[in-house]
Each structure stands twice: as C-alpha cells, then as structure tokens.
C-alpha cells in the first residue's frame, strides 16, 4: 500500500509502464484497500474529470436509450447483494452512472455489457469516481467496442483470430475446424471485461493488469485463458458442442488468477502487430 502511494506521488501514469518494479507489484495484485484509487491513477482519470459536470449530467432530460438502461439495471448483477434490490443503493447508483454516460457520450449511449463494468467500479469507488473511471476506460481502451455497430469489437475479434493462429496454431485449427470463431466467445469476455467469464478473484487481478497494460491485455488474457485450457480443448472437446460449452462456461475451478496472469504475461505480443492486423 505504501509502495503504491509512493509510486502515485512520484510518477506520471504514462511513464510507469516500463518500470519493472511496478510491473511486479501489478502481477502480485493491487491491495484491495486502494485498488479503485490505483485504477483511477493508471487510467489517468484526472485528465478527464471536470468539476460539476457529473452533477449537471444528472439533471438532463430523459433519453430514449434510458429505457434500454432501465430494462437492464436489474439484470447487471442479479446475484450480487449490493445490486439485487430494486430500490437499493446499488441499482440506483448504477442507474445514475449509466444514464449520465449516455448523455456524456451520445455516440455510444448504452450497450449491454457496460453495466457489468460500472457495477464492478461501484464496488470499489464512489458514484462520481466510477463515472469518470468509466469515461477514461472507454476512451482509452475500449473505444468503439460499445458503439452501435460494435465496430472495434468486430475488428479485434478478427485480430484475435490471427493472433491465436500464430500463437497456438493447433488450437486455432481445432476451433476453426469446428466452426468456432472468436466473436462467439470474446464478445462476452471483452464487452464485460471478463466479469461474466472468470471468478471474482481472477476478475480483479485481470483488471489490475488491464489498467496497467491497456487494451493489449484483453488479447493477452484471452490467449492466457486459452493457453491454460489448451489440453482440455484439444483432448476432451472433440466437437463444437463441447468446445462452445467450455468457452462460454469456463470452469471456475480451473480459472486461477495466477495461472491466467502467468500465461498472459508469457504471450509474446507487440502493439505494432495488433495495429497492423487491425488495419487489414
């Protein structure tokens, strides 16, 4: 905790990616007590935050997209005690943040999946902090993922297909021979930042590395998950039914945070390669 306080005082968030020490701390996991604060620091939230704006967004008029949000609020975390109650604080704050974001970024509005992000942010942060973290997160790392045509998600699913083919050719072939394309599973993984795919302990650690390394870590983590699943998929999932059942219902007991992160950091992946593939 003290180490993190010193780092946040001393360094600009943009300059710490190269630091081996920070990298090590990130891999260990950010302490719970300051997790939200460190995420905000890593996401450069101060660059986005403007005083008074959030309150002003709350007072704006009703939008059509707000109805889509309202239908979804109870369905973001139906099994989490903080969000389960219809009149509870959890749902109220979730609702406020999502409605405000629809005004803040009308080009995106609201897309199913965003509620999972905001919910997790609200477990760590105040309502207004969660809002600005959402703004920073989408702008820096998930731009185009939630847009009406889901454009960037589609591009990145294709990029992922190429990355998988060079990273793990046998597995890539096994999946594609069985008609399983990445868009079928990375849609849920990426749009919810793995909150629907992994157990909580792993989700928080994945978010730590995501805020540290950015969008690239979506690919790394996804490849890491497939790496630790490789034998099961190749040996015990001979057909498309078994493969899809596995990928869309990852067995929680196998999704250990340390294993996933170790595999994710091991993946050789350069930003240039991702950008080059994305342009094609």
């Amino acid at each position: 905790e003290a180490k993190w306080a010193a780092i946040m005082n001393k360094f600009q968030p943009s300059s710490i990616r190269k630091s081996k020490k920070v990298r090590r701390l990130i891999k260990q996991g950010i302490p719970d007590s300051i997790r939200g604060t460190v995420w905000m620091y890593l996401a450069n939230v101060d660059k986005y935050r403007k005083p008074g704006v959030y309150a002003e967004l709350q007072d704006r008029e009703h939008l059509e997209i707000h109805e889509t949000i309202e239908r979804d609020i109870q369905r973001c975390y139906p099994n989490h005690v903080f969000f389960a109650e219809a009149q509870g604080e959890g749902q109220a704050t979730l609702h406020n943040v999502l409605k405000a974001y629809a005004h803040y970024n009308p080009a995106v509005g609201y897309c199913q999946g965003m509620g999972r992000l905001v919910g997790l942010m609200l477990m760590q942060l105040s309502e207004e902090d969660a809002f600005w973290l959402l703004v920073a997160t989408i702008d820096q790392h998930l731009n185009g993922y939630y847009s009406p045509n889901l454009g960037r998600l589609r591009v990145d699913a294709t990029v992922f297909e190429h990355l998988l083919a060079s990273h793990s050719p046998a597995l890539a072939k096994h999946l594609s021979d069985n008609g399983v394309v990445p868009l079928m599973y990375v849609t849920q993984w990426f749009l919810t930042l793995f909150t629907m795919a992994l157990p909580w302990s792993a989700v928080l650690r994945v978010w730590d590395v995501f805020y540290f390394g950015g969008n690239k870590f979506l690919f790394r983590v996804a490849l890491g998950i497939l790496d630790i699943s490789r034998d099961v998929l190749l040996r015990h999932c001979p057909e498309n039914t078994e493969i899809l059942s596995y990928l869309l219902h990852l067995p929680a007991e196998k999704m250990n945070a340390d294993d996933i992160l170790r595999a994710a950091f091991k993946v050789r992946l350069r930003r240039q390669d991702i950008d080059r593939l994305a342009k094609r």
Partner: peptide, 15 residues
Amino acid sequence: FSPHSASTIGASFLT
C-alpha cells in the same frame, strides 16, 4: 426460474 437473469452479452450456448 429467477425473476432477473443476467443480461445475455453476445450469446449464450447450452445443450
């Protein structure tokens, strides 16, 4: 049956 099931993102697969 639960009155509020989690929103489906993309699609879910069952057999």
